[in-house]
Amino acid sequence: MAKSSLSLPRIIVQDMWSHKWLLLLSFVVFANAVAVVYTSYVSRQLTTKWDQQLQQRDKLDIEWRNLLLEEQSLADSSRITRIATKELDMTRPLPSEEVVVKIP
C-alpha cells in the first residue's frame, strides 16, 4: 500500500499545477461571464436613467411652454402701457419732445 508520502492534497496541488494554464483560462472565462452580467446590469440602469432624464426634459419643456404663456400675458405691451399710464401716471413724450442719445 502507499505510504504517507502520497497525501491527497499534495496530489491535487500537483495535478492543478500541471494544468495551470487550463485552470487560468477557466478562471478568466468565469470572470468574463460575471463581467458580462455586471455590465449588462449597469447598462440597463443607465438606460433607465437616460429614459428618466428624457422624461424630465419633456416635463420641463411643458413647464417652459406654460411659463412662456404666463410671461407673454404679463409682459403684454398693452398691459404695460395701461399700468404705466393709469397707475404710474406716465405719458409718452411727443416725437418733437424726444431726444435720441446716440452711443458712439
Partner: peptide
Amino acid sequence: KVRKSRDGHVVER
C-alpha cells in the same frame, strides 16, 4: 422599440 422592466422602466433601447 424598447424593453421595459416589470416596474415600467426602460432597460433597453
